[in-house]
Write a protein that binds this DNA or RNA. Structure first.
Length: 298
DNA sequence: TATAGCCAACAGGTTACCTCA
DNA sequence: GTTGAGGTAACCTGTTGGCTA
């Protein structure tokens, strides 16, 4: 309730820049209470002081001079400054309507937008929302802040909003969208990686099937040679840990199967289970097989 | 101590606007 | 001038966890 009222009232109040505000996010103290979602840090101090490495995969905004001054203003209830490209006041929807606690500091600040009002340009109330385009400087500072910590506590949000001449709600929305974009990008990267793993496994499967066919042919033509060989198994699975082992002596470079298998997490890189059954192929047996195959082909 | 209700914060999805080719 | 695609700000809804009576 209060928020809607705030939104209507505050959106009309425009002012001019009063004074510069220096923002030092690291000086913000922890809020009295913390609300966490499952993925969040356990405390605001952690969020603050740990250089959280987000899974950023998108190229960071480049080529933008960060030395350009950002119009920094101090906001209060009577003097609000319009950002050059801020054209909308973000009024929350039903959630704020449900919220009877309009006196909440953060919630009240949500709609303390420094932007031009909706009413001012003739599209008030539930009219079509205007879309703000953040300036390069604003985007840059938001990105920089996001790199340090991809979530903000309320005081950080307020301070950043003041520095950017945006409403806290806008900062909050930007961070939510930014996290979503990061996750989308990361999902795409993961998907590509799994596709490559799948391709590798498919290739390896084809190769092994071909090898089986050749060995069967060899068995038909030269059963004596075949009987002196070890079983034609190139993969050994440890019954205890379910890991797949590939004989390292057969090749100096890892086989595609080992690469692919390790990619899907079933093969330990250094796992070498003692295999008294002799299920893996010895180099000598491999040589014999190759000779047999050569004879077969010739 | 256990529990229900409230609330803030977030994720995920959607909508709507803007820009550009 | 028109149009479609892509980017993204803003919004909506459901979930989660902390706090309190």
């Amino acid at each position: 309730m209060g928020e809607q009222d705030d939104g209507l009232g505050l959106s009309l109040s425009l002012g001019c820049a009063k004074s510069a505000l220096s923002l030092n996010l690291n000086l913000v103290e922890a809020p009295p209470q913390s609300r966490r979602s499952p993925g969040q840090k356990s405390s605001w101090n952690e969020v603050f002081h740990s250089p959280e490495t987000n899974s950023e995969t998108r190229p960071f905004l480049g080529g933008v001079s960060i030395n350009r001054d950002i119009v920094v203003v101090e906001l209060d209830d009577d003097n609000r400054v319009s950002s050059p490209n801020s054209t909308v006041s973000s009024i929350s929807g039903k959630r704020s309507e449900r919220d009877p606690h309009g006196d909440n500091e953060v919630e009240a600040e949500r709609t303390s937008c420094s932007c031009e009002s909706i009413e001012e340009d003739g599209s008030g109330g539930d009219a079509a929302r205007k879309k703000l385009r953040l300036s390069r400087e604003q985007s840059l500072l938001l990105e920089e802040t996001f790199k340090e910590h991809n979530t903000l506590n309320p005081k950080q949000k307020l301070a950043l909003a003041k520095q950017l001449n945006l409403s806290p709600r806008q900062v909050e929305v930007w961070f939510q969208n930014r996290r979503a974009r990061t996750k989308t990008k990361q999902t795409e990267v993961d998907c590509e990686y799994l596709k490559r793993c799948c391709d590798n496994l498919t290739q390896e499967n084809k190769r092994l099937q071909k090898e089986v066919q050749e060995l069967r042919a060899l068995k038909l033509i030269s059963p004596q040679l075949y009987m002196h060989m070890n079983p034609p198994t190139t993969l050994t699975m440890c019954p205890s840990c379910q890991r797949v082992s590939v004989p390292s002596s057969s090749s100096s470079s890892p086989s595609p199967s080992s690469v692919a298998a390790s990619a899907v997490g079933r093969t330990g890189p250094a796992h070498n289970p003692s295999s008294p059954s002799g299920a893996s192929i010895s180099p000598w047996a491999r040589l014999q097989m190759r000779q047999g195959l050569n004879n077969l082909h010739s």
